[in-house]
Design a protein around this nucleic acid. Structure first.
Lengths: 164, 164
DNA sequence: GTTATTGCAAACCATTTGCAAGTGT
DNA sequence: ACACTTGCAAATGGTTTGCAATAAC
């Protein structure tokens, strides 16, 4: 997940967000800052509930209401800072869409792990297919299902499963 | 959508379903038959609500409760007769997974239309990538976003939009 | 000072579930 | 007869929303 090289970005996520908000006549509030900071403090896939949990009293002193988290996540998506990558446990799963290279995911049926992989070749091929169909492609989402290397190992039980 | 060639199948959907149910010690009830018949009476993408609506008193005489439709759709998925292809309007969208060739979808951002396209090349490429990563691939889901040919046409308003 | 935003609690909505009555084998 | 199913209505659970108080510009 974190082994992918980051793409150098001139503007920080928070500034990019401020820019977007400005174009919409919206404000960069304290709460929104806290959420952006939280989301971009690690390059992990996340869902809304995780943010809410981290931004809860006992945990970091900072605190943002569930409603605001939902509202802000929506804005971050519109701003192009994050994007939906999958659905897990009935929840939408997001990832960074700013400052990281485009990629797709392997999703392990056994342990649910998302494994990112570079997708230039796939993207190129898809683009060709789209042109053949006169479809003006703007993006794609590819999820490959199966069993990850670790879960494929026979014998001893999979350590990842023990985390459950 | 319906321009794709059908794959000749020896067993009808209803029989395939009966088979599956048998392996699970379950019964092919009248309600389940009605639902399968409805689902396979046309090769269109659908969501649960559409089935419920079609299987409502005034419409065809047949009538199945919403709960049973949900339950049966789940079974049809397990039986490999249908599969989830996307989410639309907060609802899961399904399509036939039996009797039709594998394909992926273009999804128009403007009119929400799903356009199927053959995906042999894509599937092959993905399989290669999976092997390189030691991922034992079992399947994939590819959605390509953009603007469909019809919605790309300039000038006059898009007729599909008028349906809203 | 305006106008956008927050937090709360209530509302929404798709989906699931407990249960008593009904049905397939 | 027995176990599986149905339909109903209530429950669930993620997400949205109305509104009064509060904060950004």
């Amino acid at each position: 997940m974190s082994e992918l090289p980051t793409v150098p970005v001139a503007v920080s996520p928070i500034d990019k967000f401020r820019e977007y908000l400005a174009t919409q006549g919206m404000r960069l509030t304290h709460e929104r800052s806290v959420i952006v900071e939280d989301v971009f403090s690690q390059h992990e896939h996340f869902d809304t509930d995780q943010i809410v949990e981290r931004l809860t009293p006992g945990n970091t002193g900072r605190r943002v209401s569930r409603a605001s988290v939902y509202r802000t996540v929506g804005l971050l998506e519109e701003a192009g800072l994050i994007r939906k990558v999958a659905r897990n446990n009935e929840r939408d799963v997001y990832e960074h869409d700013y400052g990281y290279p485009r990629h797709d995911h392997f999703i392990c049926d056994r342990c649910d792990t998302l494994i990112e992989f570079e997708n230039d070749r796939v993207a190129k091929l898809i683009e060709e297919l789209a042109q053949e169909t006169n479809f003006r492609m703007t993006g794609h989402r590819l999820e490959v299902y199966g069993i990850c290397e670790e879960c494929s190992r026979p014998r001893k039980r999979n350590p990842k499963l023990d985390l459950l």
